[in-house]
Simulated scan of single mutants.
Amino acid sequence: MGDLDDDLRRLFGDDRLDVHPAPDATDAVLRGAHRRRRRRAATSSAFLVVALVGVGLGATQLRTLSHDDPADELLETATSTSTASTTSLPPSTSTVAAPGSSSRAATPPASSGGATTPPGTGTGKPRTTTPSPPPPPPAEPGRLGALLLGMSEADALATGALIEPSSPADQENRCTAYATRSVPDSDAVVISPAKGIVRITRPSTAKTQRNVGVGSTVAEVKAAYGGATQSGTTVLVPMAASPSWSYVFTTNGTTVTMVHMRLAAHDCPTA
C-alpha cells in the first residue's frame, strides 16, 4: 500500500499532466453564455408574438361567425327560394346543422308502388245509397195576361181578353169556351160554372219562365222542368201554386206544338 500511495503522489505531482487554460478562456465562456441568453430571449419573444397573433385571429373568427352565420344564410336562401317558387315541390329532406353537431337526413318512406286506398274504403260491404227525392215542382203563377186560372166567367169577361160569343166546350154543355185576342181558337179558354177558368191556351210565340214553348224539343222541356212526366205525345209539368195547376205540352213526339195551362181540380171533360 505504501508503494501505491507514493506512485499516485508522484503521478499527480507531475507538471506535464496539468491542463493550462487559454488566456481568453474566461471571455469565451462569458460570450457563449451571453449568446445563449439572447437566443432564449428571442425564442420567447417569437412564441409570445405567435400566441398574440393566434388570439387575435381567433377573436376575429368568432366575431365573423357571430355576424355571418352560414346556417342563417342557408336558411334565408331556402326561405326566399320556397316563397318565390310557384310550383309545389316535395319537402326537402336535408337539414342544416350547427357546427360541432351531427344530424341525419330524414329518409322519406319507400313507396310501395300501388294505388293509395282512400280513407274509409275497403273490402267490406258496399254502403247503401238512398235515392234522392224528386225535385219539388217549380212555382209559377197560373196567369196569362189578365186571365187567371180559377177566375170566374164574369171576371174573365170583365178583363176584355175574351172574344164573345162563347161556344159549348162539351157535349153536355156544362162548360163554355172562348177565343182570346192572342189565340183565335174558339176553345182557347175553357170556363167551368163551378171552378171558373180551368184551361188557358198560350200563344204560339209565348215562352214560359224557363224559356220553353211551341217549337221547343221534348228534351228541352224535361231539362227545364225536372219533374216533367211524359204520356204518349203529352208532357205534363205540375206547378207549385194555389190553386194547383199544370203545364200541358202537346207534342208530335219530339217537338212541342201547343202549350196549355190547366187547373188540377177541373170538371170539364174537354179541359
Rank of each mutant, 00 (worst) to 15 (best):
P269N: 07
G227W: 01
T60N: 06
L236R: 08
T257R: 12
A28T: 11
T93F: 06
L144T: 03
A156D: 08
M1P: 09
I200Y: 02
M151V: 08
P99Y: 06
P243R: 06
D18S: 11
V218D: 10
Y225V: 05
S231D: 15
T130V: 13
Q230A: 15
Q171V: 15
K222P: 08
G54I: 12
A240Y: 05
T77V: 13
A188L: 11
A97D: 09
A240Q: 15
A154I: 15
S103V: 15
D18P: 01
T270E: 13
T81V: 05
A139P: 06
T117G: 05
P168I: 01
T43G: 12
L147G: 03
M151F: 09
S103E: 13
L30W: 04
V29D: 01
A115E: 08
T270P: 05
P108K: 03
T87Y: 04
V29Q: 00
V55F: 14
A42Q: 12
A179E: 02
A265P: 00
A51E: 02
E172R: 07
G13A: 14
P119D: 11
T176M: 10
A46V: 08
A179L: 04
R174L: 10
T60C: 08
V235K: 01
G142Y: 04
V190S: 07
S80N: 12
G160N: 04
A42M: 11
P131E: 08
V259W: 01
V248M: 01
P134V: 13
S192Q: 04
T117S: 14
L65S: 09
T87M: 06
G226Q: 15
R40D: 10
A177F: 12
S182D: 13
R202A: 15
R104T: 15
P243W: 05
R174N: 11
N252Y: 05
T123D: 00
Y225K: 04
A194M: 03
K125M: 13
Q61P: 00
D15I: 07
S152W: 09
A41D: 02
P109G: 12
T130E: 11
V49Y: 12
P90Y: 02
L75H: 12
C175E: 04
R104P: 01
Y225Q: 07
V19I: 12
R262M: 11
L144N: 10
T79H: 10
G2L: 14
S242V: 13
T64P: 00
T229Y: 03
R16I: 07
A265C: 00
T116E: 00
F12Q: 07
F47S: 11
P21C: 03
S216I: 06
T83D: 14
V96P: 13
G56C: 06
S45A: 15
V259R: 05
G160C: 05
T234M: 11
F249K: 02
G142L: 01
G160T: 02
E153D: 10
V248R: 13
T123E: 00
V49E: 14
L149V: 11
C268L: 08
V235F: 02
